[in-house]
Simulated scan of single mutants.
Amino acid sequence: MSVPENIAQALTRGTHIPYVLLIFEAEEFCKLVMDESLMDHVTRVQSMYPSHTICYLTNRLTAYINKREQENYKNPGNPSGWKRPPVEQMLSKLTTHFVGVHSRLCTDEAELAEHVVGLTSSLASCQFRKKLTRLSVNANNGTLIPKDADRFLIKKSIWLKALIAIPKVQPRSAIAIWKKYPTMKSLLSVYMDPSKSEREKEFLLENLKTEGVVGDNRRLGEICSKRVYRILMAQHGTTKTDDVENGADFFNRQSQ
């Protein structure tokens, strides 16, 4: 079987992929959070690898925290004085306070190994794919945008294209969201606010006004609001988008 010349050349000379994966055991990561040194750690890593994407991967973090909390509950006089570290807030800050920094929580060594293998495979193969922008929805260049939408406005905005790419989110709904939250980061900052309940986040967008072509302005509605929240905040990539309204992923617990 013959190998295309461009691929053969890439395999021969090797390809540098600017990606850094940092793996932490739960106790080590919690110590970074409790010492309030996680943000400094991120800054140091970024200074060493300024053009790299960075991912903080933790192993058994949730299980470790739950175990320590149970120990404290059973033994309230525990001299260790261990307190639950604000890991959720810190993980949120990795997204809201930095560019190109991600996090991933793995439940055990098997999931950790699966993620590393999948990541390695994806990074190795992406060099042979057609170059796209940060969001693959940019590839359609606006050709799938309905005629009644502001085509010029949407074609210029990757964030608007990403919103329209969410199933059942109409272009005018996407524009209403974009007017209130002009960037993905501005919306995620609210979604990751630990002071807001899950119910508040799910219904965050319901009262935004959409503008119809004949002036029939309507509310975005709770169904669309919940769909956007659940898609953007999903924990599992295998979740089917049509299932989120029924509480798929981790949203099946009762909203607070």
Rank of each mutant, 00 (worst) to 15 (best):
N6D: 15
V190G: 10
S80R: 13
Y49M: 01
R13A: 09
W178H: 15
S255H: 11
K31S: 08
R253W: 00
P85E: 06
L204C: 07
S195V: 14
T62E: 11
N72Q: 12
K31I: 00
R13C: 04
R151L: 03
F152K: 14
A63Y: 12
E222S: 10
D243R: 11
L187R: 08
A124C: 11
K161T: 04
K147R: 12
Q89E: 14
I54C: 03
L135F: 15
I154C: 02
I65T: 11
S47E: 12
K201E: 08
M1W: 11
F203Q: 07
A113M: 10
Q256L: 01
V45G: 04
V137M: 08
P167H: 07
Q170T: 07
K179M: 09
N207Q: 12
I145N: 01
Q89D: 13
S122W: 13
Y181S: 01
L204V: 05
L61H: 09
T43P: 00
N66F: 05
K74C: 13
R13K: 14
K67L: 11
L22C: 09
T62F: 06
E36C: 04
P18E: 11
V116E: 11
I17T: 15
L135Y: 15
A139M: 07
R104S: 13
T241C: 08
L21V: 05
F128R: 05
Q9N: 14
R199N: 10
K209C: 04
E71K: 07
G221I: 05
R44E: 14
Q235E: 10
P167F: 02
Q127S: 08
F29W: 03
S125K: 07
A176E: 04
L153I: 03
P76Q: 06
R60F: 00
P194C: 05
D108L: 08
